[in-house]
Amino acid sequence: MTMKILRAGDIGVLLVGTGLVAALTVYAWGGDRGATAVIRAAGQVVKTAPLTHAQSVSVDGPLGTTRIEIEPGRARVAADPSPRQLCVKQGWLTLSGQAALCLPNQVSLEIRGRAPAYDTLGY
């Protein structure tokens, strides 16, 4: 007469529940999706581009040319002459407040949302 404690449907319910928790986590804590990409060279804003359509931007710095790729909803540094390639390895940026800094070439890419994100808040 013993029924198993975990039945097939139970596992399904647990999986769906886990998915729901994961979805809520992404929804509530995922952060603000970025709206625009701000590109700077030597501290000066070179270009501000909306993250709506794909485009490629090339910026010249002391070492050479940094190529920045923008796609709907995301942006990245596609190529950079810096020796360690840190900003390239950062990959795609999607959230408001994220940034990729190519310090040797003095180029930076920053994502901004519709509302400005705070670095920190003190009460």
Binding site: M3, K4, I5, L6, R7, A8, G9, D10, G12, V13, L14, G17, L20
Partner: peptide
Amino acid sequence: HLPGRYFGPVSLSVLAAF
């Protein structure tokens, strides 16, 4: 009313908790 063959107390409990 879910079929008891597949959905046991664990399902009911999780659904009730949600």
